[in-house]
Design a binder for these strands. Structure first.
Lengths: 148, 148
DNA sequence: AGAATAAACTTGCAAATTGCAAGTATTTAT
DNA sequence: ATAAATACTTGCAATTTGCAAGTTTATTCT
């Protein structure tokens, strides 16, 4: 059983495909990266642009433009920090929160559906394993430098 | 412990980052998608363009151009099928095989390094879980229609 | 305090990647 | 024999990317 890579490649690809469904909520349609931006803003407390760009491992210039788009469609806010005027602080608008929540629900539902094909024992084991894997990757030298 | 999505999002992102390192071998430098193309060709027996494009869930036109690039740098071959002249059959050149193998080794090494942070018991459990997960996703209705 | 350095962005490219629509060539169905 | 389908290719046009160079504000150094 020496096909770790195949196993992981397959899994990552499937999740990638799963994510494609993403991102159409009511009449709002956003891209995958935009959904990730909403997600990262949502799970942080008023992050700076740097912080989110780092979390997404994307160039700040690229990120800056994505932020502009998301502001234009009214999903996020960007206000200069009063403490340090170089910094802009990001947040979700009410609409942005709705969209983020809807995507969150969709994702949870998808995961539940996937998990429904396993026994309870298997479900627990899988979750436990993902945790272990994340911890191992966090410890790893080759993996994922720009990670929270 | 109701944060499945966070767990998976984190894992997928880390693997995404892991993959970024990819793809520079000696003096050849290819993109991530190109490495996936090599991978898919490698693991199949003379696949058609359709087959690989499907596996990668990418548009055939996009794929067609990627194939042209990879031919130009001499990593893959494309020959019309004698049985059905509409079909082009893909393969790796000697150089392409070298590159695919090098990437494969890198990936394996990375995975080994990550696994080294776990006990043997945990390693087995994680591998077992990934298998279960893949099977569950294969059964899933929401996930991954275009999958081998 | 004043000058240099750094940090947090923004904007101007130019390249790469994407998908749709429309085309060509070949095969299958009627 | 003609129509329909399949397997691609090419022409767009839009999106996304990162690097380099700029602006503004904050920090550090002397």
């Amino acid at each position: 059983m020496e096909n770790k890579r195949e196993l992981f490649q397959s899994m990552v690809k499937r999740f990638g495909l799963l994510n494609r469904n993403c991102c159409t909520v009511d009449d709002v349609e956003i891209s995958l990266v935009q959904s990730h931006i909403l997600y990262e803003i949502d799970r942080r407390e008023w992050p700076s642009m740097q912080q989110v760009a780092d979390a997404l491992a994307t160039d700040l210039s690229t990120f800056s433009r994505q932020v502009q788009s998301l502001m234009k469609i009214g999903l996020i806010t960007k206000v200069p920090s009063s403490a340090d005027k170089r910094i802009s602080v990001l947040g979700l608008t009410e609409e942005g929160q709705k969209v983020a929540l809807a995507i969150q629900r969709d994702m949870e539902a998808h995961l539940e559906e996937i998990f429904s094909h396993m026994t309870e024992f298997e479900q627990d084991m899988v979750l436990q394993s993902i945790k272990l894997l994340n911890e191992a990757m966090a410890k790893s030298s080759v993996c994922c430098k720009p990670m929270y």
